[in-house]
Design a binder for these strands. Structure first.
Lengths: 132, 132
DNA sequence: TGTAGTGTACTATTAGTATTAATACACTAT
DNA sequence: ATAGTGTATTAATACTAATAGTACACTACA
């Protein structure tokens, strides 16, 4: 369901958050769909339930999922991302770091744009037919 | 010289590393040029010298700079980045996370590609005339 | 030779985060 | 009632980031 790399420097809960968001964009998870429970997901990923809970809480904070007491956690049917300046700057910083790394790895401009374009298409691949 | 955001979740030494690499790509720092000494840079950024030292050490590990005992730290004149699979995968993960964030912020494909293209051009702006 | 300016190494301390662990409670469905 | 949910809390361990202070080695240069 989600690939967890315990050797990564990215915290496990953050990997879950990223993986879920990526899966939703790819259409692997459908709006309204129920997520595995905290305990169930923890078993699947052989993690502590608290780690999964932290991820779910962060996903809810970002309005990506909605949790209902006693029922479970569900993919949000609608979410309206707020494009505030802080988030935009943070996004640019993230991209800048990645771009710098890529240029240092030997990518030239065209290759870099091609890489990103490929990743973007891969990301929205399964949703491209929908009208939403 | 380098913008340090002490409130950022990115460690200060990492901000220095990123900022230096970005500055080199932009041509603000020229190959062979001497960097401010550890103590000097620490004063400028009002940081502990050890933090700067950690950044310089990481930059040297990445072959971005060369240090000579008793003389100082210098921008590498030549560096040959190694494009191994691990680094490539790490790069892709970084881009994927940024792309997911961007899509969640409301960017569509075209806007996203445009954003990245803009950042790439901004990055290599000052070097674009050179032949190297 | 001596002095100042370099990088380097080491230890210690403080603070924060990530993860695991265990427990308890509230709510929902049946 | 009972099982399955999410939630909250506390504790412990480990790791990292940053600061602080000290000492040492090397280089340049007068």
């Amino acid at each position: 369901m989600i690939d967890i790399d315990v050797t990564s420097s990215t915290p496990i809960y953050a990997q879950i958050v990223n993986g879920m968001k990526e899966g939703i964009l790819k259409g692997i998870f459908q709006p309204g769909e129920k997520l595995p429970s905290v305990r169930e997901m923890a078993k699947m990923l052989t993690l502590n339930p608290n780690t999964v809970q932290k991820a779910y809480k962060e996903l809810e904070r970002q309005k990506v999922v909605v949790t209902i007491q006693g029922r479970g956690t569900f993919i949000s049917k609608e979410y309206q991302p707020k494009m505030d300046e802080d988030k935009l700057n943070e996004l640019k910083e993230t991209f800048k770091k990645a771009i710098v790394d890529a240029l240092y790895l030997g990518f030239d401009k065209e290759e870099l744009i091609a890489l990103v374009t490929g990743l973007v298409n891969e990301m929205e691949g399964l949703n491209s037919d929908d009208k939403n």
